[in-house]
Design a protein around this nucleic acid. Structure first.
Length: 457
RNA sequence: GCGUCGGUGCCCGAGCGGCCCAAGGGAAGGGACUGCAAAUCCCUACAGUCGCGGGUUCAAAUCCCGCCCGGCGCUCCA
């Protein structure tokens, strides 16, 4: 039985999709005004693995994710750089998608942009006005928090508590009825991009876009709404308020993935520990980052640093080593071990227990190596196939092509063959010299009963 | 301050009432294999106060209360 921890109810609950066998998922993507960082990767990866797993389990998944392509930050950057909002958004959306592609993140079925849903947002706002859940001021249209009974439910705060925080920290628009009331539509300001609306030219508030897109694509009462925990308030709380305010059922389960810390703190430019995704993926095999992240549960804050990445790199090398060993032994593909699969499924079904699932794979990996070592190729084939199957579910595939030319590879083959001859003749001086030469080129030679193999370090 | 999540070996990190003298990964020591390596396997030390103090229970890392410490949220944020 699939179970997920639901932020709204603060408990793990059995997951029953609204349509049997079909899961609808909406996940909040980034505001594209800068290059993506490792935090974006963790959030994207959480839902990537969820989608991969559900599909592997035989469920149909409709996955929608948004791109916020209009907001204060984008406008500010466009003005600063003498560019335009669409240009800034397009540039950083591409940067985001490009980096996620390197990580092998599955593409959502619907990747929508806020500016493509203006009409739907306006119509949602009209509904809220009709139902007296909102009011119009010169500065825009605002949601009336006092009209919603359980505002604050997602973050488990009372309206009074929230108001205390809002009054103390947010510059209160004195016109607003309540400091907690938030903008659905912002009236045009000079120099800003605008869209026409019944309330004059302006642009949408932040939260309304996700309501329009998620309900527009997935329909009322969709199964899962995801995003990073930092979005729980105010963004998700306000989304929920807006959607419920229109009288429809919103997300049935709320999943929030935790933050990535660098040097024990949330990364930020001001702290100087901002770690871009590109920097990490340039320095490490993308599968290393994926494995490292999956070794921590998605709801737990994780630490990201060079040591952790290097440790994960060593772990990943064991997968690649098994690939080589299995290939050298000529293992045929075999049926998977159903008991191990069951163990994996039990771990994943329990609120996406990827750390335990990964542990199961490593145990199987060791057993496969042991079987190989003892000459039990039949068992080794079963275990290796099981490892491959489960790696696939988590997106930890085999090593990619090195990018080296065929000629280079042939030259290395020739040297390795030459070394084999020298070894056969017990000319170890020569064989060691060749091995050292290859090592300098980053080539590791391994002697196996079936002959030497080599790979790039 | 309020809310929320957490504090487990040298490091990372599962477990969340008995199966725990606590998974898995990394690093460390020993052995096997190897001409020597690499890879692999086996063994060992690592946690004997699972942040601290109370309590509940036949039984607690796991539940309850209090305290200390940290992340995140309360402000744009994945």
């Amino acid at each position: 039985m699939l179970r997920f921890y639901d932020t709204l109810t603060s408990e793990k609950r059995d997951f029953v999709p609204r349509i049997e066998g079909e899961v609808s998922l909406y996940s909040c993507g980034p505001t594209v005004y800068d290059v993506p960082h490792v935090g974006h990767a963790r959030t994207a990866l959480t839902y990537d693995v969820l989608v991969r797993y559900l599909r592997w389990r035989g469920l149909k998944v409709v996955y929608a994710a948004n791109i916020t392509d209009i907001d204060d930050n984008i406008i500010a950057r466009a003005q600063r750089e003498g560019s335009t909002e669409p240009e800034i958004a397009a540039t950083y959306e591409k940067a985001y998608v490009d980096q996620l592609d390197r990580l092998g993140i599955v593409h959502p079925d619907h990747r929508t942009r806020a500016t493509e849903y203006i009409a739907e947002m306006i119509s949602t706002i009209e509904t809220l006005l009709e139902r007296n859940m909102a009011y119009v001021l010169d500065s825009g249209v605002y949601f009336d928090v006092s009209e919603l009974a359980d505002y604050g439910a997602l973050v488990h705060r009372s309206v009074d508590d929230l108001r205390e925080g809002a009054g103390a920290r947010v510059e209160v628009d004195s016109e607003k009825d309540d400091p907690l009331d938030f903008a659905l539509w912002k009236a045009a300001k000079p120099g800003e991009p605008t869209w026409d609306s019944p309330w004059g030219p302006g642009r949408p508030g932040w939260h309304i876009e996700c309501v329009a897109m998620s309900l527009g694509i997935l329909g009322p009462g969709f199964d899962i709404h995801g995003g990073g925990t930092d979005l729980a308030f105010p963004h998700h709380e306000n989304e929920r308020a807006e959607a419920v305010g229109t009288g429809v059922e919103f997300a049935r389960t709320w999943i929030h993935s935790a933050m990535v810390n660098v040097d024990g703190e949330k990364m930020s430019k001001s702290l100087g520990n901002f770690t871009t995704l590109a920097d990490i993926l340039d320095a490490f095999d993308p599968r290393i980052l994926r494995l490292l992240m999956l070794q921590t549960h998605y709801r737990k804050t994780m630490e990201m640093n060079r040591d952790a990445l290097e440790a994960a790199g060593q772990a990943l090398a064991r997968f690649d080593a098994l690939d080589r060993t299995a290939a050298a032994a000529g293992l045929a593909s075999a049926d998977v071990d159903s008991q191990i699969i069951d163990e994996f499924v039990a771990a994943m079904d329990d609120d996406m227990g990827t750390p335990k699932a990964v542990a199961t794979i490593f145990e199987t990996l060791r057993a496969a190596n042991a079987a190989l070592g003892s000459g039990d190729t039949e068992r080794a084939a079963v275990l290796t196939s099981t490892v491959d199957e489960l790696r696939g579910v988590l997106g930890i595939g085999t090593a990619g092509a090195s990018g080296a030319s065929q000629g280079e590879d042939e030259a290395i083959d020739a040297l390795v063959a030459q070394r084999d001859e020298a070894r056969a003749a017990k000319d170890f001086a020569t064989s060691d010299r060749i091995r050292d030469e290859l090592a300098e080129q980053g080539i590791v030679v391994e002697d196996k009963p079936t002959g030497a193999t080599w790979h790039r370090a």
